[in-house]
Design a binder for these strands. Structure first.
Length: 878
DNA sequence: CTGAAACAAGTCCCTTTGTCAAAC
DNA sequence: AGTTTGACTTTGGGACTTGTTTCA
């Protein structure tokens, strides 16, 4: 219970203030709290959401009455707790109808209250139930999801590129030469021996050789930096202004060039990732075409749990850093303590066995140590780490130092026809299960494991390492879209080996086998959308398990079925849209409540509910209960239609027997003209604003009419086309005419007035310019001739300082006011004969006839005057 | 104490056959 | 005169996801 203390103002409370206070009380306690209302029974029998005040502060007030005088308090008490608005509201037992507050009554009471006495100087305690904490489950929006997925994809590509570069460096001759120079001769000879022949015996030699090589590498290469780790989305986000600080540990693994890579192997220091990469170089230098394997740590596109991610990481950071810096030591500890659990690493358990000699020689600097300093460092580290690891061992801290890697290698064992994984840092050979990080490991998320081959090709080998591929790992990847588009698959296909190799096919088969033989999940939720297993409880509305055999397991008493027995169901109508019909005699397997989507259906449902009718249910059928839709035949040229007068043509196979679908819109008109029976072909539906509109594409007619209709259609179409062409031609010519006219006007006026009489221009120039800019555009782009003519008229009017054109100007204005269409001042211009002829021929254009007539008339009449018009001049450019 | 399950709350998707008036 | 076009309107349940609480 939460207490809220409301301390009334000490002195008089003015009217407005009181009102506010009470309104806020109403708001806070009743409306906002919504569900968590608690109704208290008062001593007078009334109810309210407030605790009765007979307890604490009523007692207090009674004592106050004793001590002071104040009958005021009593009256106030009555008003405040029996007549106050909150109380009034709660007398209405219908607690849901808060909006039915009669505010006028409230106001009256508030008025009464404020007009009475000042509130007592007391503390009022109102106690009510603590509302449940309302958290906002911030759903990720579609756009945000898309952004995140794109970031994820971009990151994946970057990581792929990173891996490709490092893989290329592993092939660097210099690096391999350095590597070879570091390896003891005996060990090289062992590899040579192992590679002589492909059989189990030699394969076992290779395993031993690899183990020895790992051990040497572990001693040789000191891990001094952390490598790549997974990042939460928000670490790139708002707080960090989109980037990770450059002093961040992640940048420590940033090898700027291959020279740094080479230096790293000669010095024997670097990150754990570099260690694995260099180990691949070492293997390749020995003639083993090892793969560089990387678990791509792309930023997750899922909504990050900020706090959790952050705290987990923070908590782990110290340990992690220690773990990685002291890795070589942990290896020591591992060697003595941890390897026993791995079948192939067991031999390394006892250091004083046959291999002790070689290992001692490591301390004797036989495995070239690049500098004294680093050797001393390493020894010092070994000592301290030995202590650490012993401590850790006692406190069970070994596991952290044993964390699965981001980079490792794979070596192909032809004898076993398998790729064996090798983690050189932990000296593990063929322990794929040890590469999978814990599911709660924030720094290492296993989602995409790619192998970079020596020849540069890339292959996805995730299934070899993910123990819960279907239940977990798959869900961390870019999802395959509903139409089956798999971005990751397509992306990798660009880097895949373009030709098939036997060993690749074998590997694919093996990976597939691993996928389908994945062990069953142990939690119910992991069965949700599992690709192999299904529970009845997770079935969707339109799903069923058929047949209900076999039951392949049980979890908490629930039978587990294979996912392939989960079948999709549809209503009979939906099946029809798929071009299938329910076979006669089949009963629905499941009944579901029909959903109402369209306005029409909603209205029908509302009507039904008025008569208390049951909401309609629809039966669902499986595909095996349906058959291919058998269309009705066309008899005597009569096309069978549905209740809407159409023909369902969702699939071409649904075309009535003896009929043909002519997918041409508008051909129905032709059919109608010929009196041929036809039906509009409905090929689908459009949805807009809750309305369903059939999409009609062409018609269905009897086959015998097809040729005739098509011919008629082509004829009609060509006719329409010709008409359109003619129309277009007319439009084009009109535009040309206007253009040429305009140019001629301009030229003429320019020649007559600008060239010959430029001194006269100055007088009316500014006015002139003002009126023209608009006119110019109209001359070229104007819609009608009329407008063009008006323009000319106006311009002429404005220009008038010349005696000669005065008369013309006035005359024109009068004409334009009386009848615009007859005002064609442009007609005064010279028009080339052939152009005019075009217009004359085109009798369909009314305007041109008028124009031609006018032209003759005016040209002859006003020739001399027209020549002197100033106003027709058109300015070149602003 | 931890992890799974249940629950809550948010977003997205699915849907599957009109009518009327004005303009052309 | 007949045809075409455009405006009108705008649910809600299930799936899915994420976050919190509860419980074994």
């Amino acid at each position: 219970m939460t207490g809220v203390l409301i301390t009334p103002v000490e002195t008089f409370i003015d009217k407005g203030k009181t009102k506010d206070n009470f309104l806020s009380l109403v708001d806070n306690t009743s409306i906002n709290k919504g569900k968590s209302k608690e109704i208290f029974q008062h001593s007078d029998g009334s109810k309210s959401i407030f605790e009765p005040i007979d307890s604490f502060w009523l007692r207090k007030r009674k004592s106050a009455i004793k001590h002071n005088e104040s009958s005021d308090i009593e009256s106030l008490e009555n008003q405040e707790f029996q007549d106050n608005p909150v109380h009034y509201i709660n007398e209405d037992n219908d607690s849901d109808d808060w909006e039915e507050i009669d505010l006028s009554t409230c106001q009256d009471q508030l008025d009464d209250l404020s007009e009475s006495k000042p509130l007592p100087n007391k503390t009022i305690q109102i106690t009510f139930e603590k509302p449940k904490i309302q958290y906002k489950a911030r759903g990720i929006t579609k756009i945000e999801r898309a952004i995140r997925q794109n970031v994820h994809k971009a990151h994946l590509l970057a990581l792929l590129a990173h891996g490709m570069i490092r893989n290329k460096w592993c092939n660097d001759e210099m690096t391999q030469a350095i590597a070879l120079s570091l390896i003891e001769y005996d060990l090289q000879a062992l590899f040579d021996k192992a590679l002589v022949k492909v059989d189990v015996k030699h394969a076992n030699i290779l395993i031993i050789a690899l183990q020895d090589l790992c051990k040497w590498w572990k001693n040789y290469f000191v891990i001094t930096k952390p490598g790549i780790r997974n990042r939460a989305y928000h670490e790139f986000g708002e707080n960090n202004e989109g980037k990770i600080a450059e002093d961040d540990e992640s940048f420590s693994d940033c090898l700027t060039s291959i020279n740094v890579f080479r230096r790293s192997i000669s010095v024997g220091e670097g990150s754990r990732d570099t260690s694995a990469q260099l180990f691949v170089a070492v293997l390749r230098s020995l003639g083993i075409p090892a793969r560089l394997v990387c678990s791509l740590q792309a930023v997750s596109f899922k909504l990050a749990r900020k706090n959790e991610a952050y705290t987990t990481r923070k908590k782990d950071n110290d340990l992690d850093y220690k773990g990685s810096t002291s890795s070589s030591m942990n290896d020591e500890a591992q060697r003595t303590l941890g390897l026993g659990k791995y079948k192939l690493g067991a031999k390394g358990k006892n250091r004083s066995s046959s291999k002790s000699k070689r290992e001692q020689s490591d301390d004797d600097d036989d495995y070239s140590s690049p500098s004294k300093q680093s050797r001393v460092d390493r020894l010092r580290k070994s000592c301290s780490v030995l202590k650490n690891s012993l401590k850790k061992d006692n406190s069970n801290g070994l596991q952290n130092s044993n964390a699965p890697p981001i980079f490792w290698c794979e070596v192909y064992f032809a004898a076993y026809k398998k790729w064996f994984c090798i983690d050189p840092v932990r000296a593990l050979v063929n322990s794929p299960q040890a590469m999978e990080p814990a599911s709660n490991d924030m720094d290492n998320v296993m989602a995409y494991i790619v192998a970079f081959e020596q020849d540069g090709y890339i292959k996805d080998v995730t299934r070899r390492y993910a123990s819960q591929w279907g239940a977990r790992t798959r869900k961390l990847r870019v999802p395959v879209t509903k139409d089956g588009y798999d971005w990751w698959h397509e992306t990798l296909s660009y880097f895949a080996r373009p030709y098939e190799r036997k060993q690749d096919n074998e590997e694919d088969a093996h990976l597939h086998k691993l996928e389908v033989s994945e062990r069953m999940p142990t939690s119910i939720s992991a069965f949700h959308n599992h690709p192999l297993y299904a529970l009845e409880r997770h079935l969707k509305k339109f799903e069923i398990i058929h047949p209900k055999q076999p039951i392949i397991g049980n979890i908490r008493g629930e039978p587990i079925y294979p996912r392939k027995n989960v079948k999709q169901l549809h209503t009979a109508e939906t099946w029809l849209r798929e071009g299938r019909q329910v076979m006669i005699g089949e009963q629905p397997l499941k009944h579901v409540k029909s959903r109402i989507y369209t306005l029409a259906k909603r209205r029908a449902a509302n009507m039904a509910s008025l008569y208390d009718e049951e909401p309609p249910e629809s039966g669902l059928y499986g595909e095996w209960q349906t058959e291919e839709y058998i269309p009705e035949p066309i008899i005597d040229g009569k096309v069978p239609k549905n209740s809407y007068g159409n023909v369902n043509m969702f699939k071409e196979s649904m075309c009535p027997i003896g009929g043909v679908h002519i997918p041409i819109n508008g051909i129905g008109k032709i059919a109608k003209k010929f009196g041929v029976d036809y039906g509009d072909a409905v090929v689908g539906f459009d949805f807009q604003a809750r309305r369903c509109v059939p999409v009609i594409h062409g018609i269905v007619v009897a086959k015998e009419h097809e040729t005739m209709l098509l011919e008629a259609w082509h004829e009609y179409a060509s006719h329409v086309e010709a008409m359109n062409d003619a129309k277009r031609e007319r439009e084009v010519l009109t535009r040309w005419r206007r253009l040429i006219m305009g140019v001629q006007i301009r030229m003429r006026l320019y020649n007559d007035y600008v060239k010959q009489d430029s001194s006269d221009m100055e007088e009316g120039e500014s006015e002139f310019y003002h009126g023209e800019s608009e006119g110019e555009s109209e001359l070229y782009h104007g819609d009608t001739e009329e407008e063009d003519n008006n323009y000319l008229v106006n311009v002429v009017n404005k220009s008038g300082s010349n005696k000669l054109h005065e008369t013309i100007g006035e005359k024109t204005i009068i004409e334009s006011n009386n009848d615009k269409s007859n005002t064609n001042f442009s007609d005064n211009m010279d028009i080339e004969d052939d152009f005019v002829r075009i217009e004359e021929n085109d009798t369909s254009t009314e305007g041109s006839i008028t124009w031609d007539d006018k032209d003759e008339e005016m040209y002859t009449e006003d020739k001399n005057e027209a020549i002197n018009i100033e106003g027709g001049f058109i300015r070149e450019k602003e």
